[in-house]
């Protein structure tokens, strides 16, 4: 007998199966990955700053997707959250390094 537990009906008559893919979690992951790429470029070039709003949206969407999954982050939301934070860290690090180099060159008169 083909006993498929994933499609067994529960007491309310609903089919218990794979959880529905969250649009927020997937959008968070996509925004996070694009955000990381653009923020790495944004360390050097002006137009890469488009990665900042994407990284912030990725973090917000990942946190909001928790409401759909009883407070737990799905795999996609985790990737979105990590990429969003990494994107912002990369950009902040780029700014700090740029600032230090600028400051040092001002002192040395280079």
């Amino acid at each position: 007998m083909d006993n498929n537990f994933n499609e067994e009906p529960n007491y309310t008559g609903e089919v218990v199966g794979e959880p529905k893919e969250s649009g927020k979690a997937k959008a968070s992951m996509i925004c996070g990955i694009i955000g990381v790429v653009l923020c790495v470029i944004g360390c050097f070039c002006c137009i890469g700053y488009a990665g900042v709003p994407l990284a912030i949206i990725a973090i917000v969407m990942a946190m909001m997707s928790k409401n759909e999954t009883d407070g737990e982050l799905t795999q996609q939301a985790k990737i979105g959250l990590i990429c969003g934070i990494a994107a912002l860290l990369v950009l902040v690090l780029g700014f700090v390094i740029g600032f230090v180099i600028g400051f040092a060159s001002a002192f040395t008169g280079a």
Binding site: K24, K26, I30, C31, I57
Partner: peptide
């Protein structure tokens, strides 16, 4: 809504 709708409006904003 689905991911395409979210990405559509997010992309316009960005």
């Amino acid at each position: 809504s689905d991911v395409d709708n979210i990405l559509y409006w997010v992309s316009i904003f960005v």
